[in-house]
Design a protein around this nucleic acid. Structure first.
Lengths: 228, 228
DNA sequence: GCGCTATCTTGACGCCGTCAAGTTCAATTT
DNA sequence: AAATTGAACTTGACGGCGTCAAGATAGCGC
């Protein structure tokens, strides 16, 4: 039935699932999302091309697993950023945006898998859970920034309802801004600017200092608009 | 050398380049960016798989041509939106953001080709020109919103220099927001919300009414911050 | 009306994802 | 401790992909 623990013996791998995921991450890091092949991953794991089928079903299944882990790491990074912001007195929402960006830049290939819609397993349960968790953090913090943490609980199910269009609007605002900048940086849309004096650092500095400041002030204004 | 006009005779196609581009658009619309193949496009154009090579070099060349046309359409849509805003007295920057979104939603497959970085021809001259034009519109309008249209001329060369970090910061802000929302909508990131009562229309309404309003007020604030 | 040369076809190559059938072997059962 | 079982993996093959080299075709300038 199930095999022992791990290690790489002879016929049976031991922990092929984990090995495939690691290989996938490596390939994504080296060759990006283009040039990513199932066979290459299998090769690196020292296994035949058909072996992964049993663990992931097919290529999409493997990518789905990678994306799920990516969401987890994103969630962890955001939570850590919030914790640090609390400790240092920084802005929580700004810290989240920075963490989001940092994760995207640290592993652009994986970021593309998560959000590029190469085609992930539509109904995958683990993926949905991981995505909801990450998104829930954003929702929670945005509401908190708007001054209505309410129960302040973590989302455990789907997007849940929003108390008002205003909440949803603000969330879209924050997320669009963060995601848009990350995406453009990862996809090289901003490379002309990175070629200018100051390079990428200048962009990141502008983003971190000015954009986020704008974001915060906009949310503040929004809050007063609403009259919370 | 060059053949006559067009039409589909026998051995020679007549205008294969155009036919391939149209076929590519059709495939992108039907099957999306996954499931897009050069052979399928050639099939639709009624031509052998190797025929397109002479016109586009390879698959990347075809996608590059498609992306170039996409940039042109984006530019035209944005300019038209600005013209209409001028006529109706609406906000020009908001009109641009709406046009950007509309183009993305009208042809999501092509939008993905343009911005998804399936790998376009790096140094392609026509592509670069088209991209610079589209981007130049955004820059021009942002500067104008900031109260410094200066020469007000269209960009003809690369991103040019920016008078200050403030300008660049604002442009990043506007573009990130617009691109982020468009991308998430196209890539289905917001589909959970679209499943909620109100559907996609609610999101678009929120975006158009509230986010853009926020954007404008933020830019206004930015302008006063700068002290223009 | 004759070549020139761009255009398109043919055929082949290697790589891809996936499937069906066979092989191995750890864990459980007897 | 030996047999069994069934998950894990291999082998071999299939069709489809992008691309290349070599040959066929035909519009255009001379």
């Amino acid at each position: 039935m199930a095999m022992g623990v791990a290690g790489r013996g002879g016929y049976h791998h031991g922990d092929l699932r984990q090995a495939m995921i690691e290989a996938a991450e490596a390939v994504l890091a080296e060759k990006g999302v283009d040039g990513f092949t199932l066979r290459e991953c299998a090769r690196r794991a020292g296994v035949s091309p058909a072996a992964p089928a049993h663990h992931f079903g097919n290529l999409v299944g493997l990518l789905t697993a990678v994306a799920t882990l990516g969401f987890d790491e994103l969630s962890n990074a955001m939570e850590a950023a919030v914790a640090e912001a609390v400790a240092t007195g920084g802005d929580r929402l700004a810290a989240i945006a920075d963490a989001y960006l940092a994760v995207a830049l640290a592993r652009p290939g994986r970021f593309r898998v998560i959000f590029g819609r190469l085609g992930l397993k539509h109904g995958d349960e683990a993926l949905a859970r991981a995505a909801v968790r990450a998104f829930g953090i954003l929702v929670r913090e945005t509401k908190l920034a708007l001054g209505r943490q309410e129960e302040g609980a973590l989302l455990t199910r789907l997007p849940s309802s929003f108390s008002a269009d205003a909440d949803l609007g603000t969330i879209l605002f924050v997320w669009s801004l963060t995601h848009g900048f990350s995406t453009m940086l990862v996809d090289g849309q901003l490379s002309p600017f990175e070629a200018q004096p100051g390079g990428r650092e200048r962009l990141l500095k502008l983003y971190s200092e000015q954009l986020v400041q704008l974001l915060v002030s906009a949310v503040r204004q929004r809050r007063s608009d609403i009259g919370a």
